[in-house]
Amino acid sequence: MSVRYALLALLSEGPKYGHQLRQEFEARTGEVWPLNVGQVYTTLQRLERGGLVESDGDEEGPQKGFRITEDGEAALAAWLHTPPDLSSPPRDELVIKILIAVQVRDVDVHEVLQTHRRYLVQLMQEWTRLKEHAGDRDLGFALAVDAELFRLDAVVRWLDAADGRIKRARLDRLEPADGHLPKSPRKALVRP
């Protein structure tokens, strides 16, 4: 989906040839976004049919030149300013795993949490090492790596919070008073 907008963005700098678009696309996003060559050309054809780009000839191939139309500029601007749909929680396997782990007898939930925490921190170490080696040369790459680090960091923080919450819930349960736990998770959070 975003390939078309990445191509429109490249064309917003000025007219370009097909092969040039492919090279620039790879140079700017290639490391984090591998793509097959054909996808660039088929996407360009589709953009042309939709009136978002114009070409300078009928002959298909890498030498065909493209430029963005006014409709294309407008489509690009509209897309950039439209937030992607993040309104409903994604079905997250890790969350489900932990919800199940707290119900299974003889499972040490803290150990389950730690296994995932270690894995995530190791991934973050690898991304950070990439960022360290890349230095400040490649802005696009640094931005993409940051996005991945913040995403993984959020998961680690959720694990930390879950760890604390589960510990407190267990302590509460040991006190016989009126510490009854809710029977089922809130329906609102469960997607069909």
């Binding site: 925490r117 921190v121 170490q125 950070t128 360290e132 680090l149 913040f150 680690v156 923080r157």
Partner: peptide, 17 residues
């Protein structure tokens, strides 16, 4: 640190509990 992003700069991360 409690911050995983800072910790990820390390060669090795040790977890204390």
């Amino acid at each position: 640190t409690h911050d995983a992003q800072l910790a990820s700069w390390a060669d090795r991360v040790v977890f204390l509990r």
